[in-house]
């Protein structure tokens, strides 16, 4: 696996010297279908490491579909199809020799509804990724502590690591899920409306966590909350649909998008005039 990545990165930089390899994720002319239903059209975006990118847009415009294409979760839906390229550290994750499980190890995901494993306690939940992927790690205790700390949960649970995940509040459960994704050390973390089921306090905690994560990795977050997008993201991409496939209206630095957007529809959306 690592060998193929290297060779293709090299050949990439030889062949297409005009675009240097982006560490993190990059999509090129991505389309998506469910059966005959064309739901996403021609998205080309970059998610470099050490940045937070917000994906915004009204529901049904394909944000979840797009984010699931980025770590090969799209293919679990029967009838799903795609076109275009997704590059992870410059390497196409959809090329035939790539192992989808290895990609998902590097591109983690946090879901809308907190979903800790019910049959595992807090500690086991954090370590579950390591166990599931057969990773060899020496010091489990320090991983548990480090991941829970990075997810902003350590202080609250350090005395009850053997309690079940279900005994935590919704916000704590979501932070546990973040800690769980961090344990396998992804270099991209995808979050699909991670705070939409949470209280404001938990939401703020998670936003702090996201900012800390962005010191090392790339974070892509779908959100319907404009203030949240403005608070956490460095860049924002605005998606829209006119009934047909969803498309990208505009993508730019968050500050620019919120104060001086290039498209009137973006201005209307971020000011809450529709959506």
């Amino acid at each position: 696996m690592s060998q193929t990545v290297q060779t293709s990165v090299m050949s990439m930089s030889d062949g297409q010297s005009e675009s240097p390899v982006v560490l993190g994720l990059e999509t090129r002319n991505i389309h998506a279908w469910f059966g005959k239903h064309h739901v996403l059209k021609d998205i080309s975006l970059k998610f470099p490491e050490k940045t937070v990118t917000g994906l915004i847009g009204p529901s049904g415009c394909g944000k979840s579909t797009f984010i699931r294409l980025l770590n090969r979760m799209h293919e679990f839906i029967p009838g799903a199809a795609m076109a275009g390229q997704v590059l992870h550290d410059g390497h196409d994750i959809y090329s035939p020799e790539v192992d989808a499980a290895a990609i998902r190890l590097k591109v983690g995901m946090v879901f809308q509804k907190p979903n800790p494993f019910p049959a595992m306690n807090i500690r086991e939940n954090v370590l579950s990724g390591i166990k599931l992927a057969h990773l060899k790690v020496a010091d489990h205790d320090s991983i548990v502590e480090r991941c829970l700390t990075r997810a902003g949960l350590w202080k609250e649970v350090k005395d009850r690591l053997t309690a079940t995940g279900g005994s935590l509040s919704g916000g704590q459960q979501q932070r546990l899920c973040i800690a769980r994704s961090l344990a396998v050390e992804p270099n991209v973390l995808l979050m699909d409306e991670p705070c939409s089921a949470l209280d404001p306090g938990s939401t703020l905690r998670i936003e702090e966590t996201i900012k800390e994560l962005a010191e090392k990795i790339a974070v892509v977050i779908v959100t319907h909350n404009m203030q949240q997008a403005a608070r956490v993201s460095d860049y924002c991409a605005f998606f829209l649909t006119d009934g047909g496939p969803g498309y990208l209206v505009e993508a730019d630095a968050t500050k620019k998008l919120f104060t001086n957007p290039g498209d009137t529809r973006t201005a209307d959306y971020v000011q809450g005039k529709f959506g």
Binding site: N29, F47, P48, T51, A237, D252
Partner: peptide, 24 residues
């Protein structure tokens, strides 16, 4: 870096849907 739009050729034609995860 000021933009996150990836460099890509603009095309108006919709490509064929593919399913690279299935065996060819």
């Amino acid at each position: 870096m000021s933009t996150i739009i990836a460099p890509a050729e603009k095309t108006e034609v919709v490509p064929e849907p593919i399913t690279p995860w299935k065996p060819s």
